[in-house]
Design a protein around this nucleic acid. Structure first.
Lengths: 345, 345
DNA sequence: GTTAGCACTCATTTCAAGCGAGTGCTAATG
DNA sequence: CATTAGCACTCGCTTGAAATGAGTGCTAAC
């Protein structure tokens, strides 16, 4: 399967040309624009071989060649091996630092900036909340029978839950419960909280056992029932700008997949598993999603406290700018993790 | 300018037909499909009059007629006068009740459901936060020098701000400050908080004045600097399904207007002013946004504690289903206000 | 092994003809 | 006198044939 150097160069030329033009590329184009020192006829022979090997295909008899998935794969793999030319961080990442207050806003901003930077569609999943460690809990009495539960976890993710109680309760009492909750739950993940743990907590308060028992119960069930991670997207309409998606209906189907939860969750989940390399690239059929047969997806994951908790993905046409996108993702990942891990438990 | 009954019926027929087909409608079509008992020739004469009066236009000489903005306006205005046929609440609104916990989620859901229900694009603005009344404040020490400020306002809007202090501070101390803050700020709007008010607060604490002074100062500036209302959108890609927007570039420009903040803020702001009627309809040029010349926008506003605080808008093609959309918006508004005003200050 | 030359393919562009939906006008009609 | 049948006319759209041209594969010569 090893290609000789000339075939390699021709393949690279074909893909390079196709990436920028989106038009099938012919032998004459290559001969003219790429200084390979061989005639169109020779290139034609080589192209015939490359086609037989499955790296390129002809859309129809009298057209030039376009890369097959296998061709893209070869191209991408050889890119990875090459040293990167400009490793200085992208400027766009800096804008993120300003918005680092609420993690949801940060992640939304990541999606938005990355989409703007790359001109592709982006997906960013929020951390798997239930497996992040609790740093702080606070109960706030809002109205007579309504209590706000504030939970701060690793990476400074803040969640609020409004709970309704059967009877009113004083803030001083809530403060005492808050104290006990923090004593017992600090450093645990939400998954690790269980009923025995909660029951056990009662004995450490000498206050009205019945009320506290009820409050703890409600808190426990509320926390347990929260929906886990979410997925933010941005730039989906960028899809429409590429000639390969000028069939609006196909494009809309694709956008649907990206914006609806079911299948994008699948994409994100897989992004978090396929992680031998830091950055993962899937091309066309490799994505295994019917509507995305003409796309490539580049993913990476981010960590909080050493745990892989979320993913960032860029979705573009197969002829996307892999180089630039991979670079942008790398920069982003490093910087986001820096922000998220400033204060880990 | 008063039209006789026959002209009215013909105009209504033309608009009605055009709403469903998006094709210019000719005299024969009307004669056949609408039981007016007159021949195409007569209808042609009437149409000629209607065109002269500016209610309909011909895209080109040998085509049927389509409604002008003036025609739509007449149609919409006469719709309003008509009694609604089915006033029972739309079912889709019920789904909202489930998601009423966080107001941001509620509003996002409104945008999403309304878009799904109507198949148009929707805009929902969040409440003008700064003019809603404070119900509760709470300071939570998260790390040594970081404090989380939780603010709950009218309509149970919850906002979190992480602030950084110069020196560490105990939770017990924070609780005392929290108490004083609530004492003094309950029922005020964020706009009403000013520096003298904050300064004045010191005297009610006998604790370390310098630390408290600093904390209050940071809180004040954080609260003052928060960005006010946001705008959620949904269903923007629905735009692409309408034949009037099959010029992708025009459609993309329109989507940009809806999704980018600058102009949609303008739309929402105006929606909150134009409110003689509960529901406001703007057609084509009336919108005064160049990219929306082919659209209509139907808006309504919602109130918390008697104050108009946010807007809901539906954007569709001029030939949108005004009847259904207005109905959906009305139902939505009533129910949303019910949810938001359950517990007002 | 390389390349010039040539016949061949086929998507795309171009252009004219024809179609048909629709109009406006005129003259006949009840 | 309002209504309508009839007809010539307009013009966007469809159709299909021809021309175009980018590109190939093959063969024979270098």
């Amino acid at each position: 399967m090893e290609l000789n150097e000339r075939k390699m160069k021709i393949l690279q030329a074909i893909i390079g040309d196709y990436l920028s033009t989106a038009e099938p590329v012919g032998s004459r184009t290559i001969s003219k624009n790429y200084d390979l020192g061989i005639s169109p006829a020779t290139i034609r022979n080589e192209m015939s071989d490359l086609e037989e090997l499955g790296f390129i295909v002809q859309p129809h008899t009298s057209a030039g060649r376009i890369p097959s998935d296998k061709g893209y794969r070869y191209y991408v793999d050889s890119l990875v091996k090459l040293p990167r030319e400009d490793e200085q961080p992208d400027q766009f990442v800096n804008k993120l630092l300003a918005s680092a207050d609420r993690i949801e806003d940060l992640l939304k901003n990541i999606a938005k900036l990355l989409a703007k930077e790359t001109n592709y569609a982006t997906l960013v999943s929020t951390p798997k909340y239930k497996s992040s460690k609790i740093k702080n809990l606070q109960l706030v009495g809002v109205e007579d029978k309504r209590v706000l539960v504030v939970v701060v976890t690793d990476g400074n993710i803040i969640k609020n839950y409004m709970i309704d109680l059967d009877e009113g309760i004083e803030q001083t009492m809530l403060n005492r419960i808050t104290y006990v909750l923090n004593e017992h739950l600090y450093g645990l993940t939400l998954e690790e909280i269980n009923l025995p743990l909660i029951k056990n907590m009662h004995q450490y308060t000498d206050d009205n056992q019945i009320v506290i028992s009820k409050v703890l119960d409600v808190i426990f069930h509320t926390i347990k029932s929260i929906d886990d991670s979410d997925v933010y997207f941005s730039g989906t309409t960028n899809i429409l700008k590429f000639p390969e998606f000028n069939d609006i209906n196909k494009a809309l189907e694709l956008i649907d997949v990206i914006e609806k939860g079911d299948k994008n969750q699948f994409l994100v989940d897989r992004a978090m598993n396929d992680d031998e390399h830091n950055i993962n690239i899937k091309i066309g059929e490799e994505i295994e999603v019917e509507e995305m047969i003409d796309c490539s997806i580049i993913t990476t994951s981010y960590h909080i406290g050493g745990k892989k908790v979320g993913a960032i993905a860029v979705i573009g046409p197969k002829r996307m700018d892999y180089n630039k996108t991979v670079h942008a993702l790398k920069c982003l990942q490093t910087n986001v993790e820096k922000i998220l891990n400033r204060n880990s438990v």
